[in-house]
Design a protein around this nucleic acid. Structure first.
Length: 418
RNA sequence: GGAGGAUUCGCAUAGUGGCCUAGUGCGCCCGCCUGCUAAGCGGGUUUCGGGUGAUACCCGAUCAUGGGUUCAAAUCCCAUAUCCUCCGCCA
């Protein structure tokens, strides 16, 4: 949800933001007129209601004779109040719908354009394609780390088992990520992954992503596609005090995605699956600190990538490819030798006050007034990372070298063929 | 699955149709008093929206949520949600 006062003050900024996303600025004007309708309906209702309350007080004190006269007038007034109120309800619904239709104001620095208009901020590490390169599925199958056939037998396409050292490798990576997060001031969390409609709605996932979400109809619960949902919802409806320090959480969770509309895309291996595990960082902070916090989340992601000894690049995602809630987004993409290109491993978004406004998350500002907080999220590790780890660390003899940082968890330096 | 109870300001509670402009206590904020501290005294303190740019003032909404009855609802009626207790079933 957009800041309406800011919108009224400077609608052009929002029109420009829409154009930058490649979306129509008409939705800005639709919201403005819905807002005006709603406010005028509110005002006429409030005037009538004030009159009704005043008369009610007179009646309470009036003598029986006077009462009769007053009652005649209040009866018609009651009708007027009722119609005015229903007009308020109707305009409010239209206004809310228009409000939901407008995505967050894009940050000034974010590049304009669509999916392909990102800017590469930096490339780190050397990308190589080994001779006789094998993809992660070949490696994983040969070493007994990944079993997609039995995954399909049990659950269908895009499901898999991680087995033996494959399971250990993932646990090692997730543990390392949590450890790093705790060391940098995050509170570790294991959140619920089944959530109610209002939690899903509040984080904005029921809009553009609704096809992606598993829904348990009998129980009216959604399976989360990311722990961003339960983490954002954690403080919903709360006032977080002065927020002089950001509140940071890092959650481990399984994530579930239907991958509707991705038929034929990345069908091999574990690059795109219905269920995976993830460590997600989430920050609540003052709006003025959000940009610096965003940089921090990005730097934590890069730290993890370096610990995994992966070549990667950082991109500044273009406006048209931002989510509804994001004002700016940085992705990191790791090198995948078998494909000869970079693939997204992490994504960090600055949602400014957009998400928190919907979830009603406040803090107390310098003047002691309640104000809307900012929220940010970022990925610290996911199952997909295994793709890049296995492929970049494959060795000519068929083994895979374990990154140094994971060796203590795994108890070995190399995963050897059996 | 079944039966009961609960939901009121940050917390605890009072409140059975107009006296609610929601009381009280705790907490918190401001002040007074006082060698210091504690205590005591006085004042303030739900949240959201609008007038409106404004910390003042005025208006409206807000007693879990949504409907209804009424000139008038925290209060009466209906539905729903959540929490708690108990029973049953299951791991």
């Amino acid at each position: 949800m957009i800041d309406l006062r800011a919108l009224r003050e400077d609608p052009d900024a929002y029109r420009a933001s829409q154009r930058k996303r490649g979306a129509s600025p008409d939705s800005v004007d639709a919201l403005l007129s819905a807002d005006a309708d709603h406010r005028s309906a509110l005002q006429s209702f409030e005037t009538l209601r004030a009159e009704q309350k005043g008369l009610g007080k007179q009646i309470a004190k009036a003598s029986p004779d006077e009462k009769q006269g007053l009652l005649a007038r209040t009866k018609t007034l009651a009708e007027e109040v009722k119609t005015a109120e229903s007009r308020v309800t109707a305009t409010a619904a239209a206004f809310e719908a228009a409000g939901r239709a407008l995505p967050n104001l894009v940050a000034g620095e974010a590049p304009a354009g669509g999916e392909d208009d990102f800017i590469v901020l930096r490339e780190v590490g050397e990308t190589t394609v080994p001779e006789n390169v094998r993809d992660h599925l070949e490696i994983g199958t040969a070493l007994g780390l990944i079993d997609t056939e039995r995954g399909a037998k049990t659950s269908g396409a895009r499901f898999y088992y991680l087995t033996g050292d494959g399971a250990m490798l993932q646990l090692a990576m997730l543990n390392l990520a949590i450890q790093q997060a705790v060391a940098t001031g995050f509170t570790p969390m294991i959140p619920p992954v089944l959530v109610r409609p209002d939690a899903m709605e509040g984080t904005g996932f029921l809009g553009e992503h609704s096809d992606e979400i598993y829904y348990l109809e009998r129980d009216e619960l959604y399976l989360v596609g990311t722990s961003e949902v339960p983490l954002a919802s954690y403080h919903s409806g709360e006032n977080l005090g002065d927020l002089s320090e950001p509140r940071r959480y890092a959650a481990w969770s399984s994530c579930f995605r239907r991958e509707a509309g991705s038929y034929g895309k990345d069908t091999k291996g574990i690059l795109r699956v219905h269920q995976f595990d993830k460590i997600e960082m989430f920050s609540f902070c003052r709006p003025e600190d959000a940009e610096a916090e965003h940089r921090k989340l990005l730097s934590y992601e890069e730290q993890m990538l370096k610990k995994m000894e992966l070549p990667y690049r950082v991109i500044d995602v273009a406006a048209g490819d931002l989510g509804t809630s994001a004002a700016r987004k940085f992705d990191t993409e790791a090198w995948v030798p078998s494909q000869g290109r970079y693939r997204e491993l992490t994504s960090t978004s600055n949602c400014t006050t957009f998400q928190a406004r919907r979830l009603n998350i406040k803090y107390r500002d310098e003047q002691g007034r309640n104000a809307v907080a900012a929220t940010l999220n970022g990925t610290l590790a996911t199952t997909r990372w295994l793709v890049s780890i296995l492929e970049n660390h494959q060795q000519p003899d068929g083994s895979v070298a374990v990154p140094k940082a994971l060796q203590p968890f795994l108890g070995k330096e190399v995963i050897e063929p059996k």
